[in-house]
């Protein structure tokens, strides 16, 4: 029981990190960034590439992981900004369908671009976290798991601080409410949107590195399912709401962990997606989402 909760928490913190980017981008420009899951994958591959270039393999040091984490975050953040600049910005006034299709194209490009470079087979991630653990309250907890949860929690706290306390964060919230009015008030909308993409993508990149270190193997399609799951998490929490994304991620992690315990691991994804459909049917605004009055 406790073990299930703990496992759910670990997976859930990955989901939450990716869901945050989804939710932020959706909140600010109402775009489902379909390629977000692939940024997560890119994060893992950036870490893999850097470490391989230095000839490092099978390391277990936590400081090294942190360095790689930072590096991946910056890189994926910049890639995210680049994608926004090239593919999404020219279409900001287009119908939603067009932007969504573009996002699918970007997702394809990233996935199969990585496949061309690194090959279709899974790669072993060079930094592993040791799996020795202690028994605590009836659950098995490893040091690496604690490190992951702490890093995830730290990143979320930093994000919450940025959005709630800084000038930039205020601008983001303003644009989410009304981009035109924000622009009239002197907010540089393009720059703020770039910032949002940077932050969201770097969080996804961080999650990718952490997942690589946790599971030990990465492949070019690893972002697809987690992108879907993160979207589910964002919807459960209420899309556009940051705390909702965190809550939704953790909740989905738990649900999956219990769901696979009850129905069997092969039904895990079915369980999650069925839950998404049910949630959208009965409470499309999510747990913390505000009721949106559709203006005519």
């Amino acid at each position: 029981m406790m073990q299930l909760i703990w496992n759910g928490l670990i997976v859930g913190s990955f989901y939450a990190l990716v869901a945050l980017g989804y939710s932020m981008v959706y909140g600010i420009i109402k775009l489902l960034n379909f390629a977000h899951g692939d940024i997560y994958m890119l994060g893992a591959f950036v870490g893999f590439f850097t470490l391989s270039a230095f000839g490092i393999s099978n390391e277990t040091s936590i400081p090294l992981l942190l360095v790689i984490l930072l590096l991946s975050m910056v890189t994926t953040g910049l890639i995210g900004v680049g994608i926004e600049r090239v593919a999404y910005r020219p279409l900001r006034r287009s119908p939603r369908l067009a932007v969504l299709i573009t996002a699918i194209g970007v997702s394809f490009t990233l996935e199969y671009g990585v496949r061309q470079i690194f090959g279709p087979n899974p790669e072993a991630f060079p930094v592993r976290l040791e799996s020795t653990g202690v028994d605590l309250l009836g659950m098995r907890v490893t040091a690496s798991q604690i490190v992951l949860v702490v890093i995830a929690a730290g990143l979320m706290l930093v994000l919450a601080h940025i959005v709630e306390r800084t000038r930039e964060g205020r601008a983001m919230r303003a644009i989410a409410l009304d981009p035109q009015a924000a622009q009239l008030m002197g907010v540089n909308v393009n720059r703020v949107i770039s910032t949002v993409f940077f932050i969201g993508s770097s969080l996804a990149g961080a999650a990718g590195v952490m997942a690589g270190a946790y599971y030990g193997s990465i492949d070019f399609l690893m972002g697809f399912v987690i992108g879907l799951k993160a979207f589910t998490a964002a919807v459960i929490g209420g899309i556009g709401n940051l705390y909702g994304a965190m809550l939704g991620g953790l909740l989905l992690g738990m649900l999956e962990s219990f769901g696979s315990a009850w129905f069997g691991g092969e039904w895990r994804d079915v369980f999650a997606f069925a839950f998404l459909i049910l949630f959208l049917t009965f409470k499309p605004t999510g747990l913390l989402g505000a009721r949106v009055v559709e203006r005519m």
Partner: peptide
Amino acid sequence: WRFLIFGVLLVVVMLFRP
């Protein structure tokens, strides 16, 4: 290269000939 080309093409079509 097929899928990579398709992905790029999708973006390009949407940008220049939606």
